[in-house]
Computed example of a mutant assay.
Amino acid sequence: MESQQPDQGTAEGRSRFYAIYVTGGYEERVVAVLAERARTLQLDVRSLVYSPDLKGVVFVEVGDVKDLYYVIRGVRNIKRRRPTAVNVDDILKLIRPPVAAAPVAKGDTIQVIGGPFKGMMGRIVDVRKGEVDVNLLEGDSKILVTIPIDQVKPLSKEERQGQS
């Protein structure tokens, strides 16, 4: 027996994602107005998303693009009346929370995993918000560099012994 799934070409089956450009700082207000209009007019607006880090853009998921044009018609603070189609993967990159960096402390031996010192080992001298001061252990001279905390990885005792 075949399962009955909505046709991917119809409005019920497939979502489309669009970026709407709004006046910077008004993203939350525009989302509230669009949500209320979609509810009142019973339009197929499935989600409204904005990121505080991305000023001037609101993302809308709709089943039918005609519903999008109805919901944005006449709304203040929308800069362009032509929404831009976007890929869902691009939206997820923007709204996912950043991955927490591995916990490091003063005196830890680390390996640099990004930036110009990638692959080098070092010892942490100081930890500040978002960055660490590292004494690089490569070569004869001790070089003190400041590196973003997300570009370092603490080494376990086994890894340190294997590198020596």
Rank of each mutant, 00 (worst) to 15 (best):
K157D: 15
D53C: 03
L43Y: 10
A35W: 09
R29Q: 12
T84S: 06
P83A: 02
R81H: 06
V125F: 03
L136W: 01
Q5K: 14
E61C: 03
G56R: 10
S156Y: 09
V57A: 11
E27T: 09
G122M: 01
R82H: 06
G63S: 08
D90R: 10
D7M: 09
V31K: 14
K93W: 13
L43W: 09
Y70T: 11
E12T: 15
R160S: 08
Y21N: 07
R81Y: 07
T146P: 03
I147R: 01
I147Q: 00
S47R: 11
G115A: 01
I149N: 01
F59K: 00
F59Q: 01
I72C: 03
G115K: 01
R82F: 07
S15F: 11
V112S: 01
F117D: 02
V134Y: 01
E27S: 09
S51V: 06
T23L: 11
G114M: 00
D89K: 12
A85P: 11
R81S: 11
R73M: 04
D53N: 10
K79S: 05
T40Y: 15
I20F: 04
I20G: 01
D140G: 13
M1H: 09
L137I: 08
I20V: 15
P98D: 08
G107C: 10
V127N: 04
K142N: 12
V125Y: 05
N87K: 12
D44T: 10
R39E: 15
Y18L: 00
P154F: 15
Q42M: 12
K118S: 08
G119H: 06
L144I: 12
V127L: 06
S51G: 11
V88I: 15
N135Q: 03
T10H: 13
E28P: 07
M121L: 11
N77I: 01
S3Y: 03
T10P: 04
A102W: 08
P154W: 15
V30T: 05
R14Y: 11
T23M: 07
D64G: 01
